[in-house]
Amino acid sequence: MSSIVVPLHAIAHGRAGDKGNRSNISVIVYDEALYGLVCEQVTEERVLKIFSHRGASQVRRYELPNLLALNFVIDDALEGGVNASLNIDGHGKTLSFLLLGELTVKLSRSQLPDGSPYVS
């Protein structure tokens, strides 16, 4: 079975919220069968690395298997938060798609949804 490396966006969705200089980003898998794989591969360490250029200091991951979801709480990723940030997106609302786009997962091609643009 051939494996493929794809952005997390191929198999999961999510939403970002903010409180102060702390961001939270949910990661929710579309296919129940892939929840375990995402738990295994989408670790606190890997998420922290994606936000390191923003000054992120710590990531905490919460598992919600009933909801097929993970919740990541990322400290100090908002460049001071909406009070202080010079980023036009001071709330970090777009950061869910930074995570979904930059973090990759390895899986077999057959695990991707039919017609996924990530198959090629």
Partner: peptide, 26 residues
């Protein structure tokens, strides 16, 4: 699901003045 986790940090301890909400078994 996206909205349950929106602006939520510890899903076991969402603090409000009325109740501390736990959504981990929702």
């Amino acid at each position: 699901t996206e909205q349950i986790l929106y602006e939520m940090h510890d899903p076991g301890n969402y603090l409000t003045p009325d109740v501390t909400l736990n959504v981990t078994d929702v």
